[in-house]
Amino acid sequence: MNTRRDNGSGKKDLGEVIVITSGKGGVGKTTTTASLGAALALRGQRVLVVDADIGLRNLDMMLGLENRIVFNVVDVAKKICKPAQAIIKSKKSNNLYLLPASQTDDKDVVDEAEVRYVLDQFRREFHYILVDSPAGIEQGFRNACAGADSAIVVTTPEVSAIRDADRVVGLLSSKGIEARLIINRIDFEMVRRGDMLSVRDVQDILGIEILGVVERDDQIISAANCGEPVVYNQKSKAGQAFTRIAARVCGEQIAIPSFDGGSLWSRITKKLGVNA
């Protein structure tokens, strides 16, 4: 599992680019990008989060950095500024940086080659570059996938989100990009009642590796209100979930809570011998 960064192809000191995408809007891509970025940074990884949602930027809000923006991803792509001038250090961590989107341009103002160019400017300085994709499967999505080494598909356990996730997984696979799944906003009480698809149901339907499961959690809203990723609040179940997801991204093998086992699920940190 630890081969993601050094896959033996001499790319050892280059950071891994992971696109966070979903197809459907509003399932938690931006929250996931901010939370996972912060959680990886807490583990000592140098992380750049890139807002690829040009025209509808929001990742800056999630990190509380909205009033520090000078340059953006389009400025880097068009060489209007130096790459280092456009990235903003997080208030909470010396390891976490944001490359904001432009708020005034259209999604097609940059092309895939320009996105690759931008990512290449930062690959040597960061362990992980997380690209927050816009919703949809058009140019904005294609741009966000350009240069990605792998993908994280975010879904909720709802039919429309799962259908769109399936479409996106198919598109990623046709680009040769391996996708892993985060199931967001699951409510284990509803799963117990049979009114929500379970982790296993979603995995059976989509047939891809599950990277993590995040419980529905009010703390997500308050964290967003304050512009502080939820992982800084370790009382929050969602915060704990993103911390576990970060560990899995780094190659640790931690069991996925699947609920059937009752209320102890959150304590499951047993290391598995096999890759789940």
Binding site: V159, R163, D166, R167, G194, M196, L197, D201, I205
Partner: peptide
């Protein structure tokens, strides 16, 4: 038999994803 709504969700998804795929 089951009257759980998630089973309805599953069969509807199963159906629509075959078409999509």
């Amino acid at each position: 038999q089951s009257n759980e709504s998630k089973d309805t969700a599953k069969s509807r998804l199963h159906f629509v994803l075959v078409q999509d795929r």
